[in-house]
Design a binder for these strands. Structure first.
Length: 263
DNA sequence: ATGGTAGTCCGACTA
């Protein structure tokens, strides 16, 4: 079974690229982030015609997550227990988490809050969101230690110095702060291993390149998209790669897809 | 040194 995660940056703009991705890599499951549309606006038909089922969760033009599967799509869950909300004056849940059981694997499509700046309330929101995700994910494993769970998506955290092209450029910036890295590592410590890095080691291995400043041709990127697997799921992984070619050309998302093969 | 891009709904917000 082949499972991918991709921050598509608008599914309506890139449905064709998503379909090409499914076909090119013979994907069974594709977790999408930043679909940027409501459920009603989501282009479901082309995926169904290609033989896939679609679960999507979008509330407005921001965020939005989806899971596209031809390996079954059961027990669909929007958000996770304890997931923090955002907004003033009344914080409300955002469309940042969608889970579904696909062929016996609990796949999560996650879009972790960006954080914006270290002194921005969004940064505290990001840390709280990751902390509650850790709690929920630890609970799932405590309840079912043999569960096959994949936490995939855009984590908006670069866990290691080698995951950005130049640490000096990130002085005082989000994505590399000790608190963000600790929040990410807490989820690893809860039993979820990064199953891609062993097959796609750094330095210089990235999943995101800013549209601005010629970051992609200059090879100035960040590794912020991950697939973290529970022990039972990690034990099935036979390979993984980052589809850097998908970032090329006109009309590309600013993120590259990350693909995991389960035996 | 600065600003540059790209998406959404249409001047501004998000990334």
């Amino acid at each position: 079974m082949r499972i991918a995660t991709w921050n598509v940056n608008s599914i309506r703009t890139r449905a064709g690229r998503a379909l090409g991705l499914l076909q090119r890599h013979d994907l069974d499951v594709l977790a999408l982030q930043e679909t940027k549309c409501t459920d009603a606006q989501f282009p479901v038909e082309p995926f169904e015609q290609a033989g896939y089922q679609v679960a999507r969760h979008g509330l407005n033009q921001w965020n939005g997550v989806a899971i596209i599967s031809r390996a079954g799509l059961e027990d669909v869950r929007t958000g996770f227990p304890g997931m923090p909300g955002w907004g003033d004056p009344e914080p409300a849940p955002e469309a940042r988490a969608l889970g579904a059981r696909c062929g016996g694997v609990d796949v999560w499509s996650l879009y972790i809050p960006n954080g914006r700046e270290l002194d921005n309330p969004h940064y505290a929101y990001k840390l709280g969101w990751l902390a509650r995700l850790r709690d929920a994910a630890a609970g799932w494993l405590a309840a079912a230690p043999q569960a096959q769970i994949l936490l995939t998506g855009d984590w908006n955290v670069a866990p290691r110095d080698e995951d950005v092209w130049d640490m000096a450029a990130f002085e005082g910036k989000t994505h590399v702060s000790p608190a963000e890295r600790a929040a990410f590592e807490a989820i690893v410590a809860a039993g979820y291993a990064d199953v891609v890095r062993p097959y796609a080691p750094g330095p210089g291995t990235y999943t995101y390149w800013d549209y601005q400043k010629l970051r992609f041709p200059r090879r100035e990127g960040m590794r912020i998209d991950f697939a973290l697997a529970s022990p039972a799921a990690a034990g099935r992984v036979t390979g993984a790669f980052i589809d850097r070619d998908e970032r090329k050309g006109k009309g590309a998302s600013d993120h590259a897809p990350v693909v995991v093969e389960l035996g």
